[in-house]
Amino acid sequence: MRGNRIDSFRSLLVLLVILLAIPTLQATTGEAALDSAYKKGDYLKCVSMIRARMQTEGTSSSQYYNLGNAYSNAGNPGAAVLNYMIALRLDPMNSEADNNLKYLSALVQEANESAVGDKTLDTTPASPSFFRNIRNMIASVSSDVWAVSSVVAFIIVIMLLVVYFFVKKVSLRKLGFFGSGILLIVSILLWFFASISKSAALSADEGVLMINDVVLHSAPSDKSKQVAAPLSSGTVVRILEVTSPDKDDEGWTKIYLNSDYTGWIPSSTIEAVRVPELH
């Protein structure tokens, strides 16, 4: 009788362990299946597997990076660049995503250059303005890192104030007073950096061309003059203006790569870099 109870207890325990293990087991089998599909070169299957997992379980920077790699191998630089950029939005310090994005962008630029032909056109993206450069530098560190440093600086401010209020020694009190003042400014600055990094991560003013040989137009119409040379999929551009689609018109987007490449393209050929699940 007693033995029976112990047995049933043990089996219950085993069951519990198995039940707890099931989600991790599923996850690992999912990863193994993804790995084998990736190794086999079935990249489109990888894409659908990652997408399915994103829908059921959620996303991460690494997931988008993996999606980018699958697309890149499948010969779709547009979707690859887009997903690397989203991976960097979620984690600006994902160095592998940054590396692969740079690699693809360099190739895309070479492809753009090859399409120029006899014309004299510059295909390098315009160098960003002073303020945009600063913004990009701030955004290369995650908003969360800035926010945490701001809080740490603020807590040190409070500690220095405690020193100022309660310690009798004049030199320490001086340190407390001036130190807290300086660190308070630093903390506020770091908070601003956190919000700048956040707004950069949430911005929708960058877009990636998703289709090969996108032709720029001088006005939002098929009949208008063509501008410059076609751009390859995977080209990253600034989005300046978007027209809403009409009943017989699909909608147009005004893009900016540099002074040579500014014009209108059909909105269906471009995808704005946006992370809907990021807040």
Binding site: M54, G58, S60
Partner: peptide, 15 residues
Amino acid sequence: LQKPGKLLKTHVLYI
């Protein structure tokens, strides 16, 4: 490929 890491349905920044 990277390990997928922690998967989240929504990513809310600290700020």
